[in-house]
Each structure stands twice: as C-alpha cells, then as structure tokens.
Design a protein around this nucleic acid. Sequence first.
DNA 1: TGACGCCGCTCCCGCAAAGCT
DNA 2: CAGCTTTGCGGGAGCGGCGTC
Lengths: 341, 341
Amino acid sequence: MSDVAARAGVSHQTVSRVLNNPDQVRLDTRERVQQAIDELGYRRNGAARALATARSRTIGILTIGNAHFGPSSTVNSVESAARSRGYFVSVSSLESSGESAAHRALAQLVDQGVDGIIVVAPLMDVAQVVERAAPSVPVVVAAANPNAEPTKMVRYVCVDQRAGARLAVEYLIRLGHRKIAHVSGLDSWIDASERLAEFRNVANENDIEALEFPADGWAAADGYAVGLQRAEQIRSEQGPTAIFAANDYIAQGLLRAFWECGIRVPQDISVIGFDDVESSEYFIPSISTVRQPFDLLGQAAMEALTSVQLGDAPTGGRFEAVLEPELIVRGSCAPAPSTQS
Amino acid sequence: MSDVAARAGVSHQTVSRVLNNPDQVRLDTRERVQQAIDELGYRRNGAARALATARSRTIGILTIGNAHFGPSSTVNSVESAARSRGYFVSVSSLESSGESAAHRALAQLVDQGVDGIIVVAPLMDVAQVVERAAPSVPVVVAAANPNAEPTKMVRYVCVDQRAGARLAVEYLIRLGHRKIAHVSGLDSWIDASERLAEFRNVANENDIEALEFPADGWAAADGYAVGLQRAEQIRSEQGPTAIFAANDYIAQGLLRAFWECGIRVPQDISVIGFDDVESSEYFIPSISTVRQPFDLLGQAAMEALTSVQLGDAPTGGRFEAVLEPELIVRGSCAPAPSTQS
DNA sequence: TGACGCCGCTCCCGCAAAGCT
DNA sequence: CAGCTTTGCGGGAGCGGCGTC
C-alpha cells in the first residue's frame, strides 16, 4: 500500500481512503491513486483488514456434506446469496454425527473468525449444540426446529415441513386412500420427525389408518429394503393403499422393490415422495412429490443473518422466515382401489 | 494473549511457544500456560496469525455449484481432505459460464489470501483461465484436461475419462453391438469431449458404426429430449442397438423416453451411463454405468496441492495423479439382437 | 489531507542459567 | 574453573491495513 502511496505521491491513508471512502478524496488525487493501484496491480490484504476491522467478511456454513439433496441445495443457495453480498464463504462439513463433532465444527468456524454462521444441518443434536453453545457470532439455523427459540445471537429460518407433509397426505386422502403408510426417515433429523408428526396429525384428523414403516436412512437403498420387507403386507387386503415416503430417494427404492415384487404403482399402491430430486420426474412411473424451495431458504437464511448482524431484534415469531413447500403431482399416485370400484 | 501471559506469569512469547512449539518450553510452565488458556477460554486470532505468517490456512475451491454430481462429489472429498490437514475451506461457485466469471472467481479467492486453490470445474474455458492467469498461489485443477501442462504453480489430477469411455464402449462391443450411439454431454466440458473422443477411437478401432446424438446438457431432461427425438431412428432397422450416455441422468431421461415410446431396454436397445448416481441402481431397469472415484480424486488433489506448496517439481507426467474408473454392470445392457438370433 | 498508534500474533535476537568438555 | 553449547524465556519489531487527531 505504501508503494501505491509513493507512486501516487500521497500518503498511505489517502490510498486507504480511496479504497474505502472515495468521496472523501478529491477527484484528481483519487484518479492518480487509482492509476497507481492499477499499474502496480495492488490488492488489499484481507488478513490485515480483518485484523484492523475485526471483520473477516467471511461467513461460515456448517453442513453435513453434500450427500443429501436438501442440505446440499441449501448450501448452494446460501453460498450464492452470501457471495452476492460480498462475503466469502467458508464451509465446514460434519464428518460424523454426534454433538461433539458439531461442537468442534462450530468452534472451528468461530476460531476462524467468521462474521456469522449459517447452519445447514437439520439434525436435532446440531440444533441443540448451537443453542447451548451461546455463540459469540450471529448464527442462523436453517431447520424447522420445533424447539426454535430465537435469542440475541441465534435465529431460525425453515421450510414448513409440516405443511409439506400435510400437502402430501391430504392429497392421498383426496384420492380416496384410507389406509396410508409413512416410510419415515432418520429420526435424528428434524425434518423427518416433523414430517412424521404431521403425518400422524393429518391421519388422525381424517380418521385415516396410519402405518409407520421406518427406514434406516434417506437413500434409495433404504427405501428398497423397506419395500421388500413390506411387500407381503402391501399385497394383502389389510395393507395400505398409499405410501408417503420421507423423501424421493426412498420413494425410488420403494418403487424398485415393488416392481421386483410385481406390485404395480400406482394401480396397486400409490407412492408420494418429498424433495423433487432431478430423477424423480423421469422415474417410471414419474414420482409425485413435494418440492421445497431450497433456493429461497438460502436467501432467507442470509437475510436473517444480516439482520442479526445489524442487531435487529427477533421478528417476534420463532422463525425469521417460514417457506412454503409445493405439491408436485405426477404419475405415482392414483385413486384408491376401493373408490374405483 | 497478553492476558494469558499475565495470568500465567510469563511473557506473551512463551504463550506463543506453547501454542506453536510446545517442546521448546519446560513442562511445568507449559502446563501453567495451558491452564491459563483454558481458564480464560483464550482462542488465537486467525486474522492476526495470517497477517504475521502470511499464511491463511485456508484453501479455496473453485467450482460450478453443486448441481452436478461429479463436481459436487469432488468438492465434498476435497473439503474433507483439506480439513483433515488443518485447512479451512473457502468455496467459490461460478455463477455463470464464461471466462470472465472464472477470472473473477479466481481473483476473488486470491484476494482473500488463500494458500492454494483447487479447481473443480471441468470446463475448458476455466482451465484456460487458470493457465493464462499464471496465479501467484498453488493451483490444482481436477480435470482430465488434454492440454494439461504442469507449471511451477499449477498442476493437474484427474479421473481417466478416456479409460472410462473405453470401458463402456468395449463392454457394449463385447455384448455384440456393432452400431452404437453416444449421447454426448456439453462439449464445453472437458469430460464430455474426452468421452466423445474416446468413443470415436474405440468405435474406429473395432470397426463399429458410431452415431453421435449430442444432448443440450447433463440433466435427465436433456436425455429425455434426445430419446424422444431419436426414438424413430432407434426403432428402425438401421438404428443403433446400444447407447453410451455421457452420464447417468441423461441415461435416465433416455430410459424414460424409450419407455414412453414403447422401446424396451435392454431388449430393444442397451443403454449405459456414466457416474453411478444414487438412483441409477434403482431405476427400472437398473442402469449399467461407469463409476468415477471422486473421493480419491479429492484426496489426490489435496495431495498434489501440498506438494506444490512444498515446492516439489512436477512428477514428470502431465498429471500428478490419474485415477481409474470402474465398470458397473447392471440391467440396462443386453447382447445385441443380431447375436441373439 | 497527513502523522501516529494499534489490531494480535509471529519471528529474530538477546540474555540468563544449566550442562558439557 | 574457564569457556563453550544448550535450554528456557523475554523484549521488541513488524506484518498491512484502519481509525483518530
């Protein structure tokens, strides 16, 4: 910087001013300085700036790796929202589950000196770690945490999981299904337990027989295993006529298992998924599902983070933003057999 | 830090030594200092450290967003490899295509003061930008760039795309197919053009009739469009009996289109994909494909970056590491009809 | 507009005490 | 015991900007 100053024949803080408050410098000197900067290819040193201003211009993202569709989509949108606001983005993926890993990752981010953190890991224990950590930097948790309790430093945004589950189940009910199974995801996931809870609610409200087929994970393989295991039951008269799968991959596994077992979808059983992953539309049959607005979620998270940084009080609600999912009707659901007859 | 020093009754220098070179300070003082650190909850300031050492302990990842399976898997593995080596990871996604965007993103990372950059964007123009930028920090490009020319600062690692294409096409040939189409991906992608080039080679070597059906992208929708458009041709006697799709999503779209058109896979036509995405195994029929070792690629990239930082000379080859893909045989390919008769 | 101090840390050097020949 | 190295620790400068006077 002093090189630039020397070349432009001014002092180094004039250079600094040109960079930070251009209007405080007379036009001609400003241009002279700018020219010197260009000629020397001068670039400000981020570390020095961070040290002097106590702001790193970096936000941290705490996530669970990109193996999962929802979190990975959200990270993407957070990243672009952050960068468009001039922030660098530092990503930290949870290597393993468990509170200690979450705690370490959080501490790592704080140590790095991030100006804020967005948590894209809809896991109950991660949310708890954040709550209890009482972090010194603003944190926004992107998850439909039922225990969300905004504080000075931590806020919440989410896609309304319950509304999504309701969309799916009520759609099935409208099709005449009276016996519906839910293949639930990992119960350590907030999303999974929210969807399950609302599945129960809606079934209850409508006097629907509700079956629960828990899966061992979110992957197609897990849905496949459940499908094989429940095939017998589904073929029987007492079996469910529709299934609400906790996500699309599970639905895909289910479809595959049913196909192998000679159970036709949607004639013998209807299946609806969640998330609208790319391949669902092209599956055979194409999979009806509930789409979550992950792009908006990232933006909302970034906005919420900014408002915390500005010292704004919580908006009053438990969430700074609640986004609505959308029902996508395709070919994997049909009217219940009994209605047809 | 001076607080800690005061509390432990030592100088700030000793505290620094405890943190950096513990063995240079006597056990009892070291413990005293450590205790003071714990009691005060002291954490080193990263920005100050970066300023003083001229090392940010951060590596940058330049990628194209996580919409694509390969890059996103690679980013994941790079991230974990980097963090296990004690690096923070700053991610910058290309918002748009084009050299200027790539240039900006690269500059942004450099400005931030990263210690190295790993490029996970297998695009020709991105690779060119990196080459021409003659960056001041070590860069590793994870792409099978045919023009790879390792320099002092930039190195290459890759999965052997040509070997992968060969695996797929020779498998089809072994099944007796003599007329094979390749649905190629975006030709701005290095991977796509490498696979296409090798498809031509292998076809040529084996006296195979090679058809090329370019797709407008990597998505299932693109494969679907091609499938619809080529259905007529495929049904005819002169049509290909097998298709090598540039990736699994395209293969999925193809399968869907064929299903809609009453073309049976694999009876009427064989289809093989590339990448082995999660849903491929559960598709109907399950999709034969070529798996790329993305996890190893990330590690290899990180290793290469470390070796550049250490000032090691290039290994001699054009790539620091060339990883081998693997053929995954499933249900979407069958012997050619002519062989069966 | 310019001069000065400071952000928090690391590195270079210097000094003292202890151990060696 | 002189003269040396080794070990353990402290003082001060400076990294490259920013803020106040």
